[in-house]
Amino acid sequence: MISTRRWPSSVWGKMKMKFTKMQALGNDYIYINCLNQVVDNPSKWAVFLSNRHYGVGSDGLVLILPSEKADFRMRMFNPDGTEAEICGNALRSVGKYVYDYGLTKESSLSIETLAGIRTLELTVKNGLVSMISADMGIPVLEPLKIPVDFPGDAYVEQPLKVDGRVFMATAVSMGNPHVVAFIDDVDTFPLARYGPAMEHHKIFPKKVNAEFAQVIDRNTLKMRVWERSTGETLACGTGCCVSVVGGVLTGRCERKAVVRQIGGELYIDWDAGSGHIFLTGPSERVFDGEI
């Protein structure tokens, strides 16, 4: 029996598609410039390309498209083919891609996503983007909009029983649903057990991205993430934002904090005046390819 994860025979050999693999703290995606080429059935391609044995290998597929509302539009697909609203690291990498590949000369950009329009500020050194800061908007705490099945005004520090263990959890949307629980030691935490159980918990009707965070000090958190429809990844930009939001709301950390992940550090600033949260970190091109 031929594995369904292999290349789709219906399109293999009938088209050529150029792509770029990029990573932001190990959160790696395959990026395709759709300003000059068309990708039919991107969900199917996401499944094949993301596979780390039969495909290129990635945390998902990102399409860069023209926009009538912003400078560019991005669509992103998880390794299981589902389309996600937004990803902070992928968003920042789109900024690096469009500048480094000459699609724009601007260092201030707007990007249309399913979660709305987000803005980027690019730091350029020697003609290439070295750091990207993303305005991720205002964190959403209303349960209906996250969504989480909860009758109160906000799901903050609530007991959540997952696979026999009770976590004190806070649910937030950054345009995609998240829940964060603070624990004593993220390094030894059995994420493979509790991550998928929390992702599929019945109170989250659209599933959820699950963060497990540890306080190092009031300006430093350490976090591991189980991403919805993906599994554990080395970094998650929106997950870092939510970890700081959860930390601030429960008195654990300041509004400006560094979040350490397996893949590296991201810098979070939840502005008290505007309510917007800013995500800053690097992104790198891994290689270009054609299939």
Rank of each mutant, 00 (worst) to 15 (best):
M1Q: 15
S3P: 15
T4D: 14
G13H: 02
K14Q: 13
M15A: 11
M17L: 06
K21D: 13
Y29T: 08
I32D: 04
N36P: 06
P42Y: 11
P42N: 02
A46G: 01
D59A: 11
V62A: 09
L65H: 04
E68V: 04
D71G: 00
F72G: 03
R73Y: 14
R75Q: 13
G81N: 10
I86G: 07
G95E: 05
L103C: 07
S108G: 15
L114N: 12
L114A: 12
T119I: 10
L120D: 01
E121C: 10
E121S: 15
N126K: 15
V129H: 12
M131V: 12
S133C: 05
S133D: 08
D135W: 00
D135C: 15
P143M: 03
F150G: 00
P151C: 09
Q158T: 15
L160N: 15
F167L: 14
M168G: 13
M168W: 07
V172N: 08
S173C: 08
S173L: 08
S173N: 06
M174Y: 12
N176A: 03
D184S: 04
A192Y: 02
A197E: 00
M198H: 10
H201K: 08
K202F: 13
K202V: 12
V208H: 09
A210E: 07
A210Q: 05
R218D: 03
T230E: 03
T230R: 01
C236V: 11
G239D: 02
C241D: 00
V242F: 13
S243N: 05
V245W: 06
Q261K: 14
Q261I: 09
G273D: 04
S274C: 01
G275P: 02
I277T: 02
F278R: 01
G281D: 04
V286R: 09
F287Y: 04
E290G: 13
